[in-house]
Design a protein around this nucleic acid. Structure first.
Lengths: 350, 350
DNA sequence: CTGAAAGCGCTTACAG
DNA sequence: CTGAAAGCGCTTACAG
């Protein structure tokens, strides 16, 4: 037999060592540790004492193999930026999920990839999680590839902020009501007297961005106001958005309002307007989306929509664990509410 | 025997199934999959074909148990905020680590805790990682408790941004040169003519904050300038820092410059100054620390220090994996350089 | 209340 | 070049 290439120099103490030392069988130790089976209080105490004395730590690997359960959820984040946790919307979802899982004795395995990594074969060969949660982005084709690969793992899958439920049966979506958020933004701007309005959207559309835009557009359309004008930004980074806004300002007349696809884009646009000599909110009103810390680092404080990111992560964890216990997803599409917040970057409602 | 309570309805296909189907033994399959042993090309191809056809996925749990290696690194983040990924300095370190691990076929298990969770027993009972990386915060006593608990896992440990190497032998530190960064900030401010200067530091000091302050102080002391005045902020949040700065401005005369413990604190201070009617940088100069995205959302753009957060995470992963291979840490303390960046929130050097 | 046996799915020597 | 055996460290029935 092989010598285990364990990192520790001494062999680890196993359940058998404890059993031998305590003068009982291994399963008595197991029973005591897991609170299963009937064990006399005296024996149990003795075993516990030996466990402490030997500083016995159960091997999760063995337990997992035996029970064919991993108590582990995998989280995949697919974004273009190699610094895949730079967006607070994403990190907040991750935190929500991790906190929920930890509280329920599950571990989280974290992994980041780029949309352009799609078609890289054998990316998810091994099964090491009982379920997966994924935040996808990129083109439809790429997202579908990732969903197919994830399905190949044959574990339940929860998609975050995804628009359409895929064919795959063992899958659920948790998202927030971006449409309603966008609609409230639109209604608010209309109430301040705004008529002409730009929407800043990154080139590669997220479903969320599309929903926000659609919500705002529906408000404008209902009010008989002019159509929203879409300003495409190469991506959602500060620099790119700033330049796109400036270019748009130079090539035409400034709108009454600019709706940023998220806070970051709104802030870039705000800076572009200011640098162009326009006063916020008197000449141009600006709104963001998400309401993370940065939204108030700017002056004037941004009118924005408080997102449900933490709740999305928590809920994904809850649904996944329930699915693992019950055998099927109770609900396959879950939409969480958002909360519109008025700041100083828009005029008061008249 | 027990029926495995596998989530999938059908039993998973194992290496034995592949072997049977291919008419070979299990170890031939294993050899082909792991590129070990001598196998005729014909047999190998046949086996690969069967693997594909049956869509065989190796069980990591079995592999881990057999090899007593997990190919997994645990990452523990101890911060007061339950949203433990809200600080970009932390997320960037996490991304750096994750990216490095993924590229080297390791998984990352992520977990967040509060410093006040210390003394909660049995927090790290199980061993599920080959090594640990930790970002600690809180009082010395609490940090020591966490280090002790982590040591109990008997796996190598890398501490990020920690000041002092603990007793524990199998442990290394990766940090950045905050002292030098602080010193450069101090020298720059002196070169602009600043004399009186505040430093904003949160109540619970991080080692990094202390080092930054010490660096700046050394520059001032070398130049024979007045001592830096410490402004204690309850924590490093925007609101608290804003209020602390405002209170300090109200109760005395404004300084020539304010050194923020990080960008966020600097921005809060900047806003407090502006709201107090002070012009930046003409009346008060302001500097931050870290140079993450937010640093340029503000107007004027912040003078700050570009931190090595991503490199810290990567390096932690590299040192840990090497430690796992070699059997000991090659270097127990690693300090990465930082990069001073002049913005518009300070005056030009004279 | 307690224990001997079997087996989760792999891989490492060791024989052929 | 290929295979039968042993064992990683647990836990679940099943007997006593």
């Amino acid at each position: 037999m092989s010598k285990p290439r364990n990192s520790a120099s001494e062999r680890n103490v196993t359940i058998k060592d404890v059993a031998r030392e305590a003068g009982v069988s291994a399963m008595s130790v197991s029973n005591v540790l897991n609170g299963r089976g009937r064990i006399s209080e005296a024996t149990a105490n003795h075993i516990r004492e030996v466990v402490q004395r030997l500083d016995y730590r159960p091997s999760v690997a063995a337990r997992r193999l035996r029970l064919s359960q991993q108590w582990t959820i995998g989280m995949l984040i697919v974004v273009e930026d190699p610094d895949f946790l730079s967006d607070p919307f994403i990190t907040t979802q991750v935190t929500g999920l991790t906190n929920y899982l930890t509280a329920n004795s599950y571990s989280l395995i974290l992994r980041g990839m780029k949309p352009s990594d799609f078609r890289t074969t054998g990316l998810f060969q091994d099964i090491e999680a009982d379920g997966m949660v994924a935040i996808l982005s990129g083109e439809q084709e790429q997202r579908e590839w990732f969903i197919r690969e994830l399905s190949g793992l044959r574990v339940p899958l929860v998609l975050l902020q995804e628009e359409r439920l895929p064919e795959k049966a063992d899958c659920a979506i948790v998202r927030q009501d971006d449409f309603s958020g966008g609609r409230q933004v639109g209604q608010h701007l209309l109430s301040t007297g705004a008529r002409t309005c730009w929407v800043l959207i990154p080139q590669v559309e997220w479903a969320a961005m599309r929903a926000r835009k659609a919500g705002a557009a529906s408000a404008f359309s209902d009010a008989g106001a002019p159509d929203l004008e879409i300003i495409r930004c190469g991506d959602e980074s500060f620099d790119v958005t700033y330049e796109a806004t400036l270019a748009a300002l130079r090539s035409g007349s400034a709108p009454d309002a600019i709706i940023g696809g998220n806070d970051q884009m709104a802030i870039a646009a705000m800076k572009a307007c200011m640098d162009f000599g326009l006063a916020i909110p008197d000449q141009v009103q600006i709104t963001g989306f998400n309401a993370f810390e940065i939204w108030r680092y700017v002056d004037p404080v941004l009118t924005t929509v408080r997102s449900a990111a933490h709740a999305i992560g928590e809920r994904a964890g809850a649904e996944l664990i329930e699915r693992l216990q019950v055998g099927h997803f109770r609900k396959r599409e879950i939409t969480l509410p958002v909360d519109f917040q008025v700041g100083k970057s828009t005029l008061p409602s008249s």
